[in-house]
Amino acid sequence: MPAQTSTNLSRRRITMSDIANKAGVAVSTVSSALHDTGRIGDEQRKRIKDLARELGYRPKLAAQLLPSSRSGRLALLIPTSNPVFTLQSGFAGPIIAEFIYQCTNNGKGYHIEFINQDKQNIELPYTGPDAFTSGLSDGALVIGYVENDVVRKWLHDNQEQYPYVSLQEPGPMSVSTDYAGGIYQAARHLYEMGHRKIAYMSTKSHYRVHVESLKGFKRAVEDFSLDTHDGKWIKLIGVQPHYQDWVRDHSKNAKTLLKASNRPTAIISHDVICARTTIYAAMELGLHVPEDVSVITSGSVYGAEKAPPLLSTVEPDSSSIVREAINLLNTSLMGEPVTRTNIIVDEKLFQGESVRSLTV
């Protein structure tokens, strides 16, 4: 394919992709520079802005006509039936904190709104989140799966006027963690530490975090020939209405695994609270972590550090997830073509004190 010349570019509207090609950077970097978001250096930001002016970059006409009615704010929509639990959770908590940090750090106004997941407690006809219908924001990030089908349909039907980016679940535009890759990485770490008898504890649900994580573990079992006691060491519990029921069922499964004469040498407990429950169950049986059994989890390092032992974990990169989502949203709001609508972000392995090497 021939290189684009300045003559070629002058015949059509300049896009962010053109600027990115000319500057030798990613489109997301150009978006960050032009929207004053993201963590790029001042010199890089100035160079990209100067290049945009030099090439004659202008947003689409539709985007140019909107600023008079724009709020200049972004929203974070949080579907939940229990706001207190959601704020404290290792799933949503880090994303909420990162959203506030990035908006504040870049001088961007923001609005945070809970969306009721309970279908019985929603006023009909539903007119949409206040973030949109009251003019409080121009676009939104949506955390997780929207259970309420009335709200989900409204977002889908109105996405042209009110653009949004889904976080951790599929959507017209989405940014998600590579959960399968993260759990696979955890299993590989255990394998490299000499473990072959490995159990997996998680929740059985339709949520992407649980579906993809289980896929990652099963792939690792196949690739590394891990022993799961013919699948009997894969312990999944259903979604529980009360937190204490969830903890109780995880504890029951952990004790079933650990009190058997033939037990795993390591357990992947999918969630920091699940891992802590596993460790407590081991203590009740007179076992020690990691001397008698190793435990690794998936969740934030902050949560992993809250109590001894310091947990080994694969951590979602909340900073990159929010940054990529804001760039996607800003690109859409500017009327630019979105070249990558579904972005996957890798997890990072943090080695704590809860995994023991079995290799000599």
Rank of each mutant, 00 (worst) to 15 (best):
K215Y: 09
A325S: 14
A260Y: 04
T104C: 06
G335V: 08
T339D: 12
L55S: 02
S354A: 02
P2G: 13
K259E: 10
I78A: 03
E147S: 12
W154D: 01
P163V: 05
I48T: 05
Y243G: 07
R152A: 15
G335Q: 09
G194Y: 04
I343R: 11
S357Y: 06
Y179H: 12
T278V: 15
D223M: 10
H288K: 14
A62W: 10
Y126C: 07
G38L: 05
P163M: 05
A275W: 05
L124V: 08
A140K: 03
K259D: 10
A186N: 02
H229T: 04
L66I: 08
Y191L: 05
I273P: 00
Y302Q: 12
R340K: 12
N8T: 11
S134I: 01
S81V: 14
I268S: 00
Y126D: 05
T359W: 00
T339G: 09
N330W: 02
R196T: 13
S320Q: 12
L236K: 08
Q64L: 14
S354I: 04
S31Y: 03
K60P: 00
A186R: 02
I115R: 06
S202Y: 02
P241G: 02
V272D: 08
T15A: 11
R152P: 03
P308C: 09
N330D: 06
D292R: 12
A304H: 06
L329S: 03
H250M: 15
S134P: 00
S202M: 04
T265C: 07
A26M: 05
S354D: 02
Q102N: 09
I267N: 00
Y164H: 14
L65G: 13
A97Q: 14
E123Y: 11
P79A: 04
T7L: 15
P264N: 10
S251W: 08
L87A: 14
G231K: 02
L66G: 07
K259Y: 05
S251P: 01
Y57P: 08
L190G: 04
N262C: 05
Y200D: 00
R13I: 11
L349F: 12
S205Q: 02
G135I: 04
R47T: 06
T80R: 03
I234T: 10
S300H: 01
G216Q: 01
R188G: 04
Y179Q: 05
D346V: 03
P163E: 06
K235Y: 04
V301K: 10
R73A: 15
V84R: 13
V221T: 13
P59L: 13
R340H: 12
D118W: 02
T86A: 15
F224H: 07
P2N: 14
T256L: 13
L214E: 13
E291S: 10
E305W: 10
Y302D: 13
G171W: 07
I122K: 06
A220Y: 01
G135V: 03
